[in-house]
């Protein structure tokens, strides 16, 4: 399975992250998104006329939407991650997959303005991002009241993976995460999952590993 990938892309990271959590090996093909603009070259446009990444290829299957990639990976390995146990759960999962597109447009748009100096109305993107974060916080408050740590259940699903990266990287677009205690705990719960991997700007939970002991190993003789 081959992923056309860019290390700083939160949408590519969604796919890398879920693959890591599920133990699915990926062949990564790095795309020079910035500064090269390789996603707009004829070779990449031939794979995805929309000119976006990620692109996932598996045999004759070619996917260009990250939500579909999450569904595919989860379907290969584990129905638990699909978030489709009941009709209501399936609908809530779909709701969050669509909501994730709002996060991409708002928080992701602000991030592109701030990090890659792309044109855009930064203040409007940040305001839309804050509105989305408030919605997410309110939903997570209700989940906590129900005794559930994740977006649609007390177990992680593709809904969490779809929303996690752009929320975690909101500060890249100068949108603070300080006002959201339930989002903070949810981000932590995702980062605590076995098999979690990092991307630049999203680090692992160092406290889950014991404190390194100086000279205990790897010291030259």
């Amino acid at each position: 399975m081959k992923l056309y990938d860019y290390i700083l892309s939160p949408s590519c990271y969604k796919v890398r992250l879920l693959a890591a959590l599920l133990g699915i090996p990926l062949e990564l093909r790095a795309v020079d998104f910035h500064p090269g603009g390789e996603h707009r070259t004829p070779a990449l446009l031939a794979l995805n006329p929309a000119g976006s990444i990620p692109i996932l290829e598996d045999d004759d299957l070619r996917l260009t939407e990250s939500a579909a990639m999450l569904v595919y990976l989860a379907s290969l390995k584990s129905s638990d991650w699909l978030g489709r146990d009941t009709a209501a759960e399936a609908a809530r999962t779909e709701q969050w997959l669509s909501f994730a597109q709002r996060l991409t447009a708002s928080l992701g748009g602000a991030r592109l303005c701030e990090m890659l100096l792309r044109p855009g109305d930064l203040a409007a993107l940040q305001a839309a991002g804050i509105a989305a974060l408030r919605e997410l916080e309110a939903a997570l408050v209700e989940q906590r009241l129900r005794g559930e740590r994740f977006l649609v259940a007390d177990r992680p699903t593709i809904a969490d993976i779809a929303c996690f990266p752009y929320v975690a990287l909101a500060p890249d677009g100068s949108v603070s995460l300080d006002p959201y205690p339930s989002i903070r705990l949810w981000l932590r719960a995702v980062r605590a999952l076995p098999g979690f991997i990092e991307m630049p700007g999203i680090h692992r939970l160092h406290e889950l590993k014991p404190e390194p002991v100086h000279g205990a190993e790897g010291e030259p003789a």
């Binding site: 906590r144 300080d178 205690p181 339930s182 903070r184 705990l185 932590r188 406290e207």
Partner: peptide
């Protein structure tokens, strides 16, 4: 400053 439930053991949060 904050609610106890928002700060479980082994966590840190920003406060203004």
């Amino acid at each position: 400053l904050a609610l106890s439930e928002d700060l479980p053991p082994a966590t840190v949060m920003p406060i203004w």
